[in-house]
Structures are given as C-alpha cells and as structure tokens.
Lab assay of single mutants.
Amino acid sequence: KELVLALYDYQEKSPREVTMKKGDILTLLNSTNKDWWKVEVADRQGFVPAAYVKKL
C-alpha cells in the first residue's frame, strides 16, 4: 500500500474529510482526483487536499 506524508495540519470541514497533523503518515487509498486524495488515518477514511500531502 502507498503512504503519504502530511505536509501541513488540516482540519476537516465536512464528514467526508479527515483531520491530519503535519508529519502524520497516512495510507493513500485513491489519488485519481488531482485536488482531493482519499486517505486512511486512525481507522477513518476520508479526503484531504492533495497539495497538503506528499507521496513517500
């Protein structure tokens, strides 16, 4: 499975999103959308801005 690194803190703004902290390592589930990537963090799945994460 592919992992991404959170480059910035992100606070979810809708139930479809997830909160992450800078430095978090997240499991990447889907990166087909260039703006929003689906990730899993702490047993929750949701979207984060693609610009806020980097593939490892």
Results as ranks from 00 to 15, higher is better:
1 K>V: 14
1 K>T: 12
2 E>Y: 11
2 E>Q: 14
2 E>V: 14
3 L>A: 06
3 L>G: 03
3 L>T: 08
4 V>K: 00
4 V>H: 03
4 V>R: 02
4 V>D: 01
5 L>K: 08
5 L>Q: 10
5 L>N: 02
6 A>P: 00
6 A>K: 00
6 A>E: 01
7 L>P: 00
8 Y>V: 11
8 Y>F: 13
9 D>K: 03
9 D>M: 04
10 Y>E: 00
10 Y>D: 00
10 Y>T: 01
10 Y>C: 02
10 Y>F: 07
10 Y>R: 02
11 Q>E: 15
11 Q>S: 12
11 Q>A: 14
11 Q>G: 07
12 E>S: 15
12 E>F: 06
13 K>D: 06
13 K>H: 09
14 S>Q: 08
14 S>T: 13
15 P>F: 09
15 P>S: 12
15 P>V: 11
15 P>R: 11
16 R>V: 11
16 R>D: 13
17 E>N: 05
18 V>E: 01
18 V>N: 03
19 T>V: 03
20 M>Q: 02
20 M>N: 00
20 M>A: 02
22 K>T: 07
22 K>E: 08
23 G>E: 02
23 G>K: 02
23 G>W: 07
24 D>E: 11
26 L>W: 03
26 L>C: 09
26 L>E: 00
26 L>S: 02
26 L>G: 10
27 T>P: 15
27 T>A: 14
28 L>Y: 02
28 L>P: 01
28 L>W: 01
30 N>D: 15
30 N>G: 07
31 S>K: 06
31 S>C: 12
32 T>A: 12
33 N>C: 11
33 N>G: 12
33 N>W: 07
33 N>M: 10
34 K>C: 11
34 K>D: 12
34 K>E: 10
34 K>M: 11
35 D>Y: 15
35 D>L: 13
36 W>R: 03
37 W>L: 04
38 K>A: 09
38 K>S: 07
38 K>F: 15
38 K>R: 11
38 K>N: 08
38 K>W: 14
39 V>D: 00
39 V>Y: 00
39 V>F: 00
40 E>F: 06
40 E>G: 09
40 E>S: 10
41 V>N: 15
41 V>Q: 14
41 V>S: 15
41 V>M: 15
42 A>S: 13
42 A>F: 15
42 A>M: 14
42 A>N: 14
42 A>P: 14
43 D>A: 11
43 D>Q: 10
45 Q>T: 12
45 Q>Y: 08
45 Q>E: 11
46 G>L: 05
46 G>N: 00
47 F>T: 03
48 V>L: 02
48 V>E: 00
48 V>I: 09
49 P>N: 03
49 P>L: 04
50 A>T: 06
50 A>G: 06
50 A>V: 07
50 A>K: 06
50 A>M: 04
51 A>N: 14
51 A>W: 09
52 Y>P: 02
52 Y>A: 14
52 Y>E: 03
53 V>R: 00
54 K>Q: 13
55 K>S: 08
56 L>M: 10
